[in-house]
């Protein structure tokens, strides 16, 4: 991994992260003072104490945390840094909160190139600006070579609740189900990059900030019953979770669910289902059916959700929690995958 992505240093060991970078001495101070803080710089981070004193919020706080491990660290459409910022911000956004502050914890494998780390930090800074959040506190650990896979990141986030939390228990039979864009892009982009499956066009991750879409719906007064970003387990996992929480059945019109040709192509080749593949900038929305047109109008005016569509509805609980209408018009149950999807043999 390290050898793959990080060019050999031109000037001896100076360009490599060493164990000492995490051990509290001079190297660590210079990493913080010369690299991390200047790149992510903001007033709160500049306090540089053990804890950060945060301004008072205007409403209840929402708090979340997530860890990011991905191979490869760079992939078409994003990298682990972007993922770590958008992922946690999106968890806040789909909780009905405006993302405000993040912590950033880096676990670095000894030997990672410093210029690669700078690149990831810059990516974190760019994503934080885009998502309108500040990294206000953090931690850096360096572990011996082989004890991690290049770089692991954990971010925790604090947001300000701006609407009743859109938990799936609020889903009613008759609610419409929307998605904000093509599904499965992130999972397929990472798979193609990791396995070096040469595809044309290259599948790209949808990694991005969902808050602008949530905020637009809120500001337009669209009532929202549930929000959820379709990360691990993809749209399938969200629909199952919603069906269980609200004791409804999700009926999805298969032909309405947007899937990019490159995603579909790879899924067809490997025998995977795009419904099960992860997204990192796409969410599902449940809302009262009579607000669908308004919601779509609002969502389509925001970049991240420009290709939002109406894909189905919640109905009173039937035998299957989730069913998809396939091309011949038959409703077919959609089961939850067992662990990560594996390609079929032939």
């Amino acid at each position: 991994m390290i050898g793959d992505q990080c060019p050999l240093p031109g000037s001896g060991d100076g360009d490599r992260i060493q164990l000492a970078h995490g051990e509290g001495g001079r190297l660590m101070r210079s990493l913080l003072g010369e690299v991390i803080i200047p790149t992510l710089g903001n007033d709160l981070l500049a306090q540089a104490h053990d804890g950060c004193v945060l301004p008072t919020l205007n409403g209840p706080a929402v708090f979340t945390t997530d860890s990011y491990v991905v191979t490869p660290l760079l992939f078409p459409g994003g990298d682990i840094g972007k993922l770590a910022v958008y992922g946690t911000s999106n968890d806040l956004a789909v909780s009905g909160a405006r993302p405000r502050w993040l912590s950033l914890s880096l676990i670095i494998e000894e030997g990672l190139s410093l210029s690669f780390l700078r690149r990831i930090l810059q990516s974190i800074a760019d994503a934080a600006r885009e998502a309108d959040v500040q990294v206000v506190t953090g931690d850096t650990k360096v572990v011996p070579r082989g004890a991690a896979d290049g770089l692991f990141i954990t971010t925790s986030g604090v947001g300000e609740l701006m609407m009743p939390a859109p938990w799936p228990e609020g889903i009613q039979p008759g609610d419409a189900i929307l998605v904000t864009g093509p599904i499965g892009r992130h999972g397929i982009a990472v798979l193609a990059a990791r396995e070096r499956l040469e595809m044309d066009p290259v599948p790209t991750s949808d990694t991005g900030a969902l808050f602008p879409a949530v905020a637009a719906l809120h500001e337009a007064g669209v009532p929202i019953h549930a929000l959820r970003d379709c990360t691990r387990g993809g749209l399938t996992a969200v629909l199952h979770e919603w069906a269980h929480a609200s004791r409804t059945t999700m009926i999805i019109e298969g032909s309405q669910v947007p899937v990019l040709p490159e995603t579909r192509g790879l899924c067809e080749l490997l025998g995977l289902d795009p419904f099960h593949c992860a997204c990192e900038g796409t969410m599902a929305i449940a809302l009262p059916a009579d607000h669908v047109n308004h919601a779509l109008q609002v969502l389509q005016s925001v970049n991240i959700s420009a290709s939002a569509v109406h894909i189905g509805e919640a109905v009173p609980r039937q035998i299957s929690p989730v069913a998809v209408r396939r091309s011949l018009g038959q409703l077919v149950a959609l089961d939850e995958p067992w662990g990560a999807p594996l390609p079929r043999i032939c």
Binding site: R326, S327, L328, G329, Q330, L331, V332
Partner: peptide
């Protein structure tokens, strides 16, 4: 056959 509901049809 099963994914497209042909057995049912």
């Amino acid at each position: 056959l099963l994914a497209h509901g042909i057995d049912e049809a």
